[in-house]
């Protein structure tokens, strides 16, 4: 059973990125559960976790949101590579936060970045995931926590 603190750590890692990098805080939407195939947008940063918990945590965002985020960061390169870098950095931050808080119990992988409509996110069949919408400006991304 996931602890609230664990979920909060991942959520804070994500919202913190927006607050710090774009100087504009993100809020979280109404969280819910989901079973089965992962829900993803165009760009997804994934960290794998093993140890006390097993599974994946990923941040997936639509291109439009990333574009605005990059603009807010005064970036003017909106290439595919930059988008990948950006979700990679968000995942990096989530991973860093998790290491700080649960480094003792978790083994946390280096983030990997996936893009496209149907990325291969390793997930156990029947695994229930927490979906936490990350709302920023008018856009919405998702933080998916899929751990056992």
């Amino acid at each position: 059973m996931l602890y609230e603190q664990e979920l909060k750590t991942f959520v804070e890692g994500t919202t913190n990125f927006f607050e710090v990098a774009a100087q504009q805080p993100a809020s979280i939407g109404s969280p819910y559960l989901m079973e089965g195939a992962p829900a993803v947008h165009e760009y997804t940063g994934v960290i794998k976790i093993s140890g006390k918990r097993e599974g994946v945590v990923y941040f997936t965002a639509p291109k439009a949101m990333l574009t605005v985020l990059l603009m807010k960061m005064q970036e003017n390169d909106f290439s595919h590579e930059t988008m990948r870098d950006l979700v990679g950095e968000v995942a990096n931050t989530i991973s860093g936060n998790a290491r700080r808080d649960f480094g003792r119990d978790f083994v946390i992988s280096v983030p990997s970045v996936l893009s496209g409509e149907k990325p291969e996110i390793p997930q156990r069949p029947g695994q229930r995931s927490f979906i936490i919408p990350i709302n920023w400006r008018s856009h919405s991304a998702k933080l998916v926590v899929s751990l056992t």
Binding site: M73, E75, T82, D85, G88, E89
Partner: peptide
Amino acid sequence: DSNLMRRRIER
């Protein structure tokens, strides 16, 4: 390793 970060720091 992130191009984005390199530019960010530079800028």
